[in-house]
Amino acid sequence: MSGLARFARNRGALIGLVLLVLLIAVALLGPSLYPTSPWRLVGRPFMAPFAMDRFPLGTDTLGRDIAAGLVHGARVSLLIGLVSTLVSLMIGVPVGALAGYLGGVADDLLMRFTEFFQTIPSFALAIVIVAILQPSLTSIVIAIAIVSWPPVARLVRGEVMSLRSREYVLAAVTVGQSTPRIILTQVLPNTVAPIVVMGSLMVASAILLESSLSFLGLGDPNLMTWGYMVGAGRTRLLDAWWISFLPGLAIFLTVLALNLVGEGLNDALNPRLARGRD
C-alpha cells in the first residue's frame, strides 16, 4: 500500500488535515475578512458571543472584536510555528548528521552540547531569552528554535548512525564516493520521512510555546496573538469566561490538527508497525 493510501485511510489524519486547511485559509484570507487592526476598540466591552450580529464571538475586556483577534492570531501562530520549526531544523539536522556520520570525538562533543540544551528547562530558557532580548517576532522565533532543535539533532543522529553502517552506505564508500556526497545522496534522503513527521509535530509544539510566552506577556507587542488574548481575559474569568475560552480553543484545535496530521504522516511514511508473517 502506498503512503498516500495509508494516510487517506487514517480518519484522524483526515480530520486533522481538514482542520488545518481551514485554518490556513482563515490565516490567508484574514486581512480581507477583517481589514482593520484587531487592536481597535470597536464596541462595548464584555459582549457575549452571538449577542450581536456584528460581533459573532463577542468583545473582550476593552471592547475589541474577538473574531478579528482570532483571525489575525491564526496568521501569527502559523507563521511563528513554521518559521521557528524551519530554523530549528536548520540547526538540528546538520548537528545530528555530523555527529552521527563522523562518530568518535566529534559525536561526543556535539552530543554533550545537545544534551546540555536538552537538560535546560526549555520554557524557562525561552522566557529568559525573550525577556532579555525584548519581545519581538525575531526574539520569539530565536527562543523557540534554540529550545526546540535538540530532539531533531538526536533523531537525525540516530537515523544517520544506523544508516551509516547500512551496507548500501558501505558500498558507496567502497566505490569511492566522497563523504559529503554520501551524506547528501545516500544517507539524508533516507532520513527525510522521520524528519518530516517530527517537523509537523514541532510546528504544533512551537505554537504551544509561542502562545505560552504571549500568555505571560512576552508576545510581540505589535501582534495580536491567541496567547495574549487568553491572558488578557483572565482577570474576568467569572463573568466573561469566553474571552479566555475562545482563543484557547483556537490554540487547542490548531495543535490537535497538526498532531493528527503528524501522526498520519508517521503511519504513512514509517510503516514499521505493519506486521509481517513467518
Partner: peptide, 9 residues
C-alpha cells in the same frame, strides 16, 4: 494538544 495555561484557567 491542550495549552497548559488554558486548561488551568
Amino acid at each position: 494538544a491542550t495549552p497548559l495555561f488554558w486548561i488551568a484557567l
